[in-house]
Design a binder for these strands. Structure first.
Length: 243
DNA sequence: TTGTGATCATCT
DNA sequence: AGATGATCACAA
C-alpha cells in the first residue's frame, strides 16, 4: 500500500525531515510531531519519506492513515490494540471537506461476534480504542488530487462524560442484539453516535458465531463506526475552544 | 483468516 | 447531500 519510490529520494528514516517509524517517547513528543505535520500536503510528506502517492484512493483506501502512522511512529501494526500501546493513544485520520466537516464515518474496531455476549463496556475494544484518540484531520475532497491534500491541526481527545454515555448506550443496545442472535435486525440505521456496518473483504464473507442459546450460524463480519455528526462535534468543540 | 488502515458506490 | 452497505490493500 505504501509503495516506496524507486528513485531513492530520501531513504526512509534517515534523511527525511520527519522521524519515520520512530516511536514517540511520550505524549508531549507525539503532540509536537503531529503538529509538525500540520499544514503540509500529503505529497510533501510522502516525498519526505520516499513514498509514492497513489493517483486515487480507490485501490488504496488506507493509504493516508498508514502514511501518517509511519510518519508518527505508530507501532501497533494490525493488532487490536491502540496505535501507540505505551501511551494508550489511538491514531485516527479524519477526512474533512473545505469547511472542516467530516466526509466519512470513522471505523473504530471489528466486532467479536462470538464473544460479544459476555463482554463488558470497560473491557470492550470500543472503549479501549476511544478512551484517548489523536485525531488528524486531512483534506479529503475527492476532486482534490491526493498529493495536494493538506494535513490539518491535530487534536488529542478524551470523550466527555456525556460522550461516554452516548457511546455506551449505543454499544449496549447493539451488543444486546448481537448477543441475542438478532444480527439480521442490525442495520446502519441503529445508534445515535455509533453504528454497526459490514467490515469485510466482500459482501459474501461469513464468519461463524452463536447466540445466547448456543445455536451456530454464519454472519457477515461487522465493525463499529462513529457517525460523521459525532466526529464533527468533536472538531467543533475543539476549534471553538482554541480560537 | 482476521484485524488493521479506511473510502467507494449507490440509494433515498 | 447524506447515509448505508460494499469493497480494497496489507500484515501476521
Amino acid at each position: 500500500m505504501l509503495t516506496h519510490s524507486q528513485t531513492e529520494s530520501p531513504t526512509p528514516g534517515e534523511r527525511g525531515r520527519f522521524l519515520w517509524n520512530q516511536k514517540p517517547g511520550d505524549l508531549i513528543e507525539l503532540e509536537a510531531r503531529a503538529e509538525s505535520l500540520s499544514g503540509i500536503t500529503l505529497g510533501q510528506l510522502a516525498q519526505d519519506g520516499g513514498y509514492i502517492v497513489p493517483a486515487e484512493l480507490r485501490r488504496a483506501k488506507g493509504w493516508v492513515g498508514t502514511l501518517i502512522e509511519k510518519a508518527l511512529g505508530a507501532s501497533a501494526g494490525s493488532r487490536a490494540i491502540p496505535d501507540f500501546p505505551q501511551l494508550g493513544v489511538e491514531l485516527k485520520t479524519l477526512p474533512i471537506d473545505q469547511n472542516g466537516k467530516p466526509l466519512e464515518s470513522t471505523f473504530v474496531c471489528s466486532i467479536e461476534l462470538s464473544k460479544i455476549a459476555d463482554s463488558e463496556w470497560l473491557e470492550s475494544r470500543l472503549f479501549g480504542k476511544l478512551s484517548h484518540v489523536l485525531w488528524v484531520p486531512v483534506e479529503g475532497t475527492r476532486s482534490l488530487p491526493v498529493a495536494e491534500r493538506r494535513i490539518g491541526t491535530p487534536l488529542f481527545w478524551r470523550p466527555t462524560d456525556e460522550e461516554v454515555d452516548l457511546l455506551r448506550a449505543d454499544w449496549e443496545q447493539l451488543c444486546l442484539l448481537i448477543a441475542q442472535g438478532r444480527t439480521g435486525e442490525i442495520t446502519g440505521h441503529l445508534g445515535q453516535v455509533l453504528q454497526v456496518r459490514p467490515k469485510a473483504a466482500r459482501g459474501s464473507s461469513r464468519r461463524r458465531t452463536s447466540d445466547e442459546e448456543g445455536a451456530l450460524y454464519d454472519e457477515q463480519p461487522k465493525g463499529f463506526y462513529l457517525r460523521p455528526r459525532f466526529t464533527h462535534g468533536i472538531l467543533q468543540r475543539y476549534f471553538s475552544l482554541s480560537c
